[in-house]
Design a protein around this nucleic acid. Structure first.
Lengths: 188, 188
DNA sequence: CCCGTGATGACACTGAATGTCATCCAGCTC
DNA sequence: GAGCTGGATGACATTCAGTGTCATCACGGG
């Protein structure tokens, strides 16, 4: 794998995040990143689709874990409960990387481009969850509503977590899911 | 206002959408757009923030209408109901432009960049709704969960509308909102 | 020891987006 | 009606993201 200096991708990732934090995302050029990593510009784009992609690496893997969790949920569980169990896995995984998440959040909040990409991540996750729910037999549109609403709660919990770093994300997710329940229980 | 040929912005908008539909978004350059509109590239970026912005013009105006509707809802209504009334206004407004919406949707579905921008629009709308709900006295996190969940239902309805153009969007929004209710009513 | 594979370097190129200054037109003033 | 002013456009230069292409290098297998 590593023929020259090892861990090319890792070096690029670290250099990028360092520079994004030091100077801001917009002020950082890909040339600066690759220079710090001792590589060329072209190599950066062989490892990442674009400048933003560096910050959203583990997304697909996380989606897969969520999907598997939902598929493994007891058939007796409601769709919402099965989906929620998937989100709890995701929350637990993210809780383990809270320091990393803090940096990421600071960048995302200050850069609309990054916010866009983050939202795309949520949407893809919602699609994954919806698919997992249809596989359990739920009708398609209901699956999409369920999945998107669950991700909505997750999203709010995640943002709240940013403002309250002492709290535990899985716990916060459960709280927002409860809020979601009580909302729908109201009279509208 | 219009000193040379009138309606500069409108000409750019029409030229852009025509070309996006004819050739695809990625294959269209800003130079092609401005050439068709009889203007220069620089002028394009004086009217639109970027290539994508052309397709998301009326967003802010719509957000304001939604916010006003929520603010004007009877104080006795639940937050969810007040928010839903705002979304109904938005749905009615979009229903009037269903032909235009059809083109937009075709483009957005075939171009991830545009999908990102659309999601940002939903997120901004959710923020607007959340703010309107906190103004009604709802606690902040609950307002965010409510707003984001409502937009989730709206989003699913909007996408469903794309596949079922004969249906009426306001009606579809009500249906997905009902689905949202029954989800939260289940046992999770 | 050679050869193939996969990753990197080097180079050229397109196109988005921005900054800057000159230019033009409309309406207003006197 | 001559001149002024302000907002909008044209013209030009520039930076930088992202892509295509080909040469080059290191490693593992034969």
């Amino acid at each position: 794998m590593g023929r020259w200096e090892p861990d090319t991708r890792g070096r690029l990732e670290r250099a990028a995040i360092e520079l994004y934090l030091e100077q801001g995302f917009d002020q950082t050029t890909v040339a600066q990143i690759t220079h710090r990593a001792g590589l060329t510009t072209r190599t950066f784009f062989r490892h990442f689709a674009d400048k933003r992609d560096v910050l959203f690496a583990g997304r697909r893997e996380l989606s897969e874990r969520v999907a598997k969790t939902i598929a493994a949920a007891p058939p007796a569980w409601s769709a919402a409960r099965a989906g929620a169990s998937g989100l709890n896995i995701a929350a637990a995984a993210l809780q383990l990387r809270r320091e990393e998440a803090k940096d990421r959040r600071a960048l995302i909040r200050s850069t609309p481009e990054l916010r866009e990409r983050e939202l795309l991540g949520y949407a893809e996750m919602a699609e994954t969850v919806a698919e997992a729910l249809t596989d359990r037999g739920l009708e398609q549109r209901a699956a999409r509503v369920t999945a998107t609403a669950l991700l909505a709660a997750f999203q709010v919990a995640f943002e709240y977590w940013g403002d309250h770093p002492d709290r535990e994300l899985p716990q916060l997710v459960n709280e927002t899911l409860d809020e979601l329940k009580s909302i729908a229980g109201s009279d509208f």
